[in-house]
């Protein structure tokens, strides 16, 4: 459960920028939420605050009842490691590590034994369809494959919440479909809570709910009908070449 209360973020400077102007909402566990809005609406800023990557100016964030903004830097780092997963727009992988090494890095940081973290991450890489690319360097993977490695890394610690910041922005149509269907599947099969920032309206149809932002404010909430979602899962971003 995510509970956000009156969240504000102002970037100081000669002209202060009020990126978030008092945002409040709740998201129950296991929900796939798309965050939409035009550029500069504050959607990425919101994600950064929720994922504890940045400090809001004021407000409150409760993650499973824990007021995470009261945590020290060290505790926040540990909280991110144990409970949160983050998928960036530009893959954001470590180029010196191969696919599985990128995926098991959080487990290594958690102190899991090598044999165990290899087993867990291999299984997860199979779930994201990369069991035949485990030992490939990042430079040897396509954009879609890299993003799936990033998703595996974000989930490998059994994170409570997966944050995805425009995860399909740099992907072609086929790979967009693969990634969105994968996220949807994770939500359905594992009960994963997902918050995904996107600016493409078609992508919202994969979600359960949409939060619309404009000028730093939550302006509209939308629930996606089940038949629309099912249609997106089966037909969205399909190309002539089958990807599954």
């Amino acid at each position: 459960m995510i509970k956000v209360t009156d969240l504000k973020k102002t970037y100081s400077g000669k002209i202060p920028v009020h990126a978030l102007k008092g945002v409040s909402f709740e998201i129950p566990s296991g929900q796939f939420v798309a965050i939409m809005g035009p550029s500069g609406s504050g959607k990425s800023t919101l994600l950064h605050q929720l994922a504890l990557l940045d400090d809001p100016t004021s407000g409150r964030i409760l993650l499973d009842g824990l007021d995470v903004l009261t945590l020290t830097d060290r505790k926040r780092t540990e909280f991110r490691l144990r409970h949160l997963g983050y998928v960036f727009q530009e893959y954001a992988l470590i180029p010196e590590l191969n696919a599985i090494e990128n995926a098991f890095l959080p487990l290594m940081l958690l102190g899991m034994k090598r044999k165990e973290f290899i087993r867990v991450s291999t299984e997860l890489m199979g779930r994201v369809g990369l069991d035949n690319r485990l030992h490939h360097l990042i430079s040897e993977l396509s954009g879609g494959e890299q993003q799936r490695v990033a998703i595996a890394r974000a989930l490998v610690n059994k994170s409570k919440i997966l944050f995805a910041d425009e995860p399909c922005a740099n992907l072609d149509t086929e790979n967009k479909g693969i990634v969105l269907r994968l996220l949807r599947k994770l939500c359905n099969d594992l009960g994963q809570t997902i918050l995904m920032v996107t600016h493409e309206p078609e992508q919202r149809e994969f979600a359960d709910r949409v939060l619309w932002f404009r000028d730093g404010r939550l302006v509209k909430e939308e629930y996606i009908a089940k038949d629309v979602r099912e249609d997106a899962i089966h037909n969205g971003y399909r190309t002539d070449v089958s990807s599954d």
């Binding site: 994922a51 991110r80 992988l93």
Partner: peptide
């Protein structure tokens, strides 16, 4: 720098 930011984001001290 970017990778260091990512490492911190995933919870690396």
């Amino acid at each position: 720098k970017k990778q260091i930011g990512i490492m911190k984001a995933i919870g690396m001290k």
